[in-house]
């Protein structure tokens, strides 16, 4: 059993996302520790990218803030490695293909292993291009998380059969960001996955309120929240740790 599976054993999993280095790495460090103590089952650590094409404005701006504060991939790895013993939950990295490829895909995965990171999520690398990542992930025992979208249809089963860790179910069309309503039949997406694989399914994109999280968790194994948390960080800056923790706690309770 991978680390990831264990994250889905404490009721429905709550998976918060933060952009590393937003507003600075010291704050991210505190956030990771605090979120793991307040209900996070997996934390997605975003490595900022200059041109994140799958992100809405909220996370785009977080990436720019992080880069402006001097954040680099190496500084993120160093920080995670140092505080890893204090973090109770599973860690995953979310970034784009270019920062991984240019760092050196093999070196990147080796670093993930060294830092106790269990999985990578790379939204601009679809099933057809997984050979760019997977051999390196396999070499170091890192799970390559696959995504499925409302437009995936016939592709869902193909993707699910080879998926590792958990399956990231994109709830809505478009980019990341808070939505007042989610209209996709995510239940049907999850049913298609489960017909070929017992992999845990986590739903992300657009979820912000405890009510939405509860509703989404009814048809899945976990809920991913990014923009709503990044918004709190944007609002409170270096003082964001407490309000983010309160939010994480509230969301985990909603889906328990």
């Amino acid at each position: 059993m991978s680390d990831i599976k264990s994250a889905f054993e404490n009721g429905k999993a709550f998976i918060p996302f933060v952009t590393a280095g937003d507003p600075n790495l010291e704050t991210t460090e505190k956030l990771l520790i605090a979120m793991s103590e307040n209900g996070a089952d997996i934390i997605e650590i975003g490595i900022p990218f200059s041109d994140p094409i799958a992100e809405g404005v909220v996370i785009q701006e977080a990436d720019l803030r992080a880069l402006a504060s001097g954040t680099t991939t190496d500084k993120i790895f160093d920080m995670v490695k140092r505080i890893r013993p204090q973090i109770k939950c599973v860690l995953a990295v979310m970034t784009y293909m270019n920062p991984i490829f240019v760092y050196g895909t093999d070196k990147f995965m080796a670093k993930c292993k060294e830092c106790g990171i269990s999985a990578v999520i790379v939204p601009d690398t679809p099933f057809e291009e997984k050979s760019e990542l997977k051999p390196h992930c396999d070499k170091y025992g890192i799970d390559m998380v696959s995504l499925i979208a409302p437009t995936s249809h016939d592709r869902i089963k193909t993707i699910a059969k080879e998926a590792q860790g958990f399956l990231y179910c994109v709830s809505s069309m478009g980019v990341t960001g808070v939505r007042s309503e989610i209209t996709t039949d995510v239940g049907e997406m999850v049913r298609l996955v489960k017909s070929v694989s017992d992999i845990p399914c986590a739903i992300g994109f657009g979820i912000s309120t405890p009510e939405q999280a509860k509703k989404m968790s009814e048809s899945a194994d976990g809920v991913i929240v990014g923009s709503a948390i990044v918004k709190i960080i944007a609002k409170y800056g270096t003082e964001c740790v407490q309000p983010v923790c309160d939010y994480v706690k509230q969301m985990k309770e909603a889906i328990m």
Binding site: I53, P126, E129, E132, T151, R155
Partner: peptide
């Protein structure tokens, strides 16, 4: 070359 795009666009 290749097709490095989000899954949402693959069918399109």
């Amino acid at each position: 070359g290749g097709q490095f795009v989000p899954e949402t666009l693959m069918n399109a």
